[in-house]
Each structure stands twice: as C-alpha cells, then as structure tokens.
Design a protein around this nucleic acid. Structure first.
Lengths: 65, 65
DNA sequence: TGTTTTTGTAAAGTATGCTTTACATCTTGC
DNA sequence: GCAAGATGTAAAGCATACTTTACAAAAACA
C-alpha cells in the first residue's frame, strides 16, 4: 500500500527518529513504512494520520500499492 | 478500537458469512472484528470501508476503543 | 578531511492478524 | 419439536507487524 509518510515527515523537517519518537514506534518501523516493506497496523495508521492532521485516506492509498 | 461493522452489515441484511465472502476473509475474522477481539489490518480496514461506501474514519473509531 | 547525523538493512524474537477445522449454542420457521 | 441457518468460541498453525541490537553506508557539515 502506498503512503505519503516520507513526504509529510520531510515537510515537517523531521528525521525518521523524530517521527518514530512522536509515534512511539522504533526508527526501523518508520523506515520500513516509508520504504513500503509492510503496512502499519490500523491504530498506527490512525496515529500517523492524526499527527499530520490528515485522514487515513489522505495518507494511505490502497490503490497504488 | 471501536467499529460499526455489525451495524453496517445488518443494515444490508447480510450474515457474517455473507460479509466474509465479500471481504474475502473467513467468517471467524468477521466475528472477531465485530466483537472487538482484534483490529483489522489496514488493507482489510480499507476493504470494509469501501464495501460500505464509507471512509475508514466513518467505520473505525480509535478513540472509543 | 574527518566527525556526526541520518538512512538502510539484517537477524532473532514477540505480538497480532488471519486461516482451517471443529463443535456448541441461539434463532428462525416449518 | 425438529431441522437449518446464524453466531460464538477454541486450538493449532502461518503470515505480518513491530521490537532490539548491531553494523554499513550516505549525507551534512565543521
């Protein structure tokens, strides 16, 4: 599943470690999500969307996987 | 995480097995989701929302868990 | 150049999502 | 009352999400 995490993170001027801290996950998890190695759990997807003030649909796109 | 799956399913007059078929998951998975035993994966959450013509946030609510 | 920060990746382990098989209970309708 | 459909639940197994530790390489920068 495609996502805009990297783009949104860079828009805030954050490192992967910064974002990981805010999401309370490991830096490796952020890296894996940005690189599309796997999809986040639903709670984590909500946490990401909320952090950037967006809907789940605005961050994740199941069509362009 | 709270969800409106049962309500939406009954609104269509579907059994858990009917919904499971449409989502291409097992009936036990639908039962578990409705009963809040666990959260769906993100792709499955999208599939549920799409099936009912709703957004992910209209079906799943991470606040009222 | 050399030092620090950031990113990528790997391996091993734990937790969660989902499957199949199976059976019990509840509901509906004849 | 009986049969059939619907729901709840359990156990065992496989797949995916996430962790920690560790190291290599790229990027930023004095």
């Amino acid at each position: 599943m495609n996502n805009r995490i990297r783009e949104l993170r860079l828009g805030q001027g954050w490192s992967q470690a910064d974002l990981a801290d805010r999401l309370k996950v490991s830096r490796q998890t952020v890296n894996a999500l940005e690189r599309g190695r796997y999809d986040p759990s639903l709670p984590l997807a909500f946490a990401v969307a909320r952090l950037f003030g967006l809907t789940v649909e605005a961050v994740f796109d199941p069509n362009l996987d």
